[in-house]
Design a protein around this nucleic acid. Structure first.
Lengths: 383, 383
DNA sequence: TTGAAAGCGCTACCAG
DNA sequence: CTGGTAGCGCTTTCAA
């Protein structure tokens, strides 16, 4: 038995003696789709190994219209007579039509893929931002393809290249400090880009995030306002976590300015974790017992610091005050509750998505800075 | 001026008088890619609006080989003479060739996209699992397209459909309880699927995760082993969070069996958070002051419970013992540290990816259950 | 408002 | 080992 597939190829149509595809066969119910169907292509007897799936052509044929009209019925319904449109929709439902967006992307102007490369998925650092961003894009019919560079610039470059090979409608990147190759690549591809979480003026295209120097300054400023005079900065400063370094720098500058002395830096290049915080705090306080204020590079680190302080018999906030960054869920449940700086996670995700959407729609690049908010809690003496 | 593009179309070749594409023009350096280039298609003067990008055909021409050979040079390098391969690679680099995976996917057997639909991105519930899974797939050249159903079955169905329209090589889904339409859809598409985090025998294809009933049983069993006799279960049981309900059920059954009494259930259908835990704990203890053991549906909820207990002047573990689920980073930093059940997050992610990879490679479906481990800490009286 | 046909860039098959 | 060529399924002119 020979099953004719939907086809548009002129030569084949001529060969089979049909003038137009739509009328190649009488209309009517489509033969049931056999599982793992193998079909005969052309009259050559050659076999295709791909499953027989409903295509737009099948829908068109079943509805008695041209492929083109069927396409328009989905894409711009207003340009098709309502009655035809209904027929087409019915045919699509009956045949379980599922559009092939690869084909659509290949033929069309853009793809509906947005490549997002984050630096980490652990500890939900970007979970909430990603959730909002993804939701916003989804609502516009775009899908997020996710990459994770694990704070590795070369890996990030490779991922961006990989994303670009899907011809994305846009690209999202965490931070503004990247491998130089990325700028070159993105420029050549002329694709809308949003760098989020951190901001700068010299970004590739769009950027939205926080001034991380300022966050460090807020931490130090708050400790100073609470009468700390010997301040330490504790946490992870991975080589390629530029944002962590900026927070450190902001903290350092503020201490220098307002206190006229140097910050005690106690950091390692391994990733942040409670264990890191716990270890660093012990080292720090054994060698610098005069420390009365600790700014942590993340809440997760601060949790560990609080634990060590407790173990060492130091009272918080009386003996030492502690502030984190990130406002993780557990912060309010620590004893005492952890003061921290709150990043507007969902606002950033939402704005990142919107910027991309506007750019894809032909709009201009934009840059926007969000403020991070101080949450003064028990660990620095309360509100 | 008329710029000829790479083309393979026979009719056009005939029209332009060239026998084969590769020799259509003398070899040599490719003209620089003008930004936003507009090109003349055919001799009709029609204009294409798409940017002029390097295609495989360009690379082939520059290297003096057929498109076909160039393709094989990338895909299965061994089948091409080393010296030719080098030429092709050099041409690709010189022309900044970026493969178009849409085209590859459309023409080839499968696409290199894996659609993953999670129920939440918040609180990093699946962050670590996703991180491992994504990494494992990335290493195999597959890319994760991410969807988030927000615990909504209809949304999940829509997302699966959306993912399928990208003709993914595989699909990953959180949990094993889905909208019936999903089974139908996946069956029709014959695509490898892995359901992860939860397991069951009647899964679509593959599944890997934990027995969530068992997790509830572990929680209750541990509280009972620590001499609790009045046990409550606290947390969020969203309508469509079947896993939370299974943990509740497991807990309930164990209490009934071992204690011969009923569990006090104190749950709401809103999402889990410290605030929920805090509120529920207050309600619970005001009406059931006899409670001496609380199993929480997640660590995040347990954090809030601990806070309330502290505020109410109840001592943990002396007056009330508390156990969570999830082993969030902060758990060891609570005061007292939080006992919990540890899910093997990365193991699940890794195995999920591997199962998919094996299936894509023609392997058989598999089912695998991982055990969750008890972490007995301060909130239940220590190890 | 509808239809015809030319691609989009690549893979896979077959022939040499 | 290499090349020719027919699609993959869709969008997009252009013509009717």
């Amino acid at each position: 038995m020979q099953i004719f597939r939907a086809f548009t190829d002129t030569a084949r149509m001529a060969e089979t003696g049909f003038r137009t595809y739509n009328h190649a066969r009488p209309h009517g119910p489509w033969p049931p789709l056999a599982d793992e169907a193998r079909i005969l292509v052309k009259n050559t007897g050659r076999r295709s190994t791909r499953p027989l799936r409903t295509t737009l052509a099948d829908v068109a044929r079943a509805a008695g219209v041209s492929i083109n009209t069927a396409s328009r019925a989905f894409r711009s319904p207003k340009t098709v007579r309502p009655e035809l449109r209904l027929q087409i929709e019915e045919a699509a439902t009956a045949l379980h039509y599922l559009p092939n967006r690869l084909a659509g992307g290949l033929a069309g102007a853009h793809t509906g893929i947005v490549g997002v490369v984050v630096t980490s998925l652990f500890y939900s650092e970007f979970g909430e931002t990603l959730e909002t961003m993804q939701g916003e894009l989804e609502a516009a019919g775009l899908h997020v393809m996710l990459g994770n560079s694990r704070y590795d610039r070369n890996e990030e470059l490779r991922l961006v290249r990989a994303m670009l090979s899907w011809r994305p409608a846009g690209i999202g990147l965490v931070g503004v400090d990247h491998h130089p190759g990325i700028r070159e690549l993105l420029k050549r591809e002329q694709v809308p880009v949003v760098e989020f979480w951190d901001v700068c003026d010299d970004c590739f295209d769009c950027s939205v995030g926080m001034d991380h120097c300022r966050i460090g300054a807020i931490q130090a400023g708050h400790l100073i306002a609470r009468d700390c005079t010997r301040i330490a900065f504790v946490g992870s400063t991975r080589n390629e976590d530029h944002r962590a370094r900026k927070r450190l720098a902001g903290c350092m500058a503020t201490v220098r300015e307002q206190l006229g002395c140097e910050l005690t830096q106690c950091t390692l290049t391994e990733g942040g974790s409670p264990e890191l915080g716990a270890r660093l705090a012990r080292t720090l306080l054994e060698s610098h017992p005069e420390i009365d204020g600790i700014a942590c590079n993340s809440d997760v680190v601060a949790f560990g610091v609080l634990r060590t302080l407790r173990e060492m018999g130091l009272r918080v906030p009386n003996d030492v005050k502690v502030i984190g960054f990130g406002d993780r869920a557990a912060a309010t449940c620590m004893n005492p509750s952890l003061s921290t700086v709150i990043p507007p996670r969902s606002a950033i995700g939402e704005e990142a998505a919107r910027m991309l959407l506007r750019r894809i729609d032909g709009g201009k690049p934009a840059i926007r800075t969000f403020d991070a908010e101080l949450a003064a809690r028990g660990s620095t003496g309360g509100p």
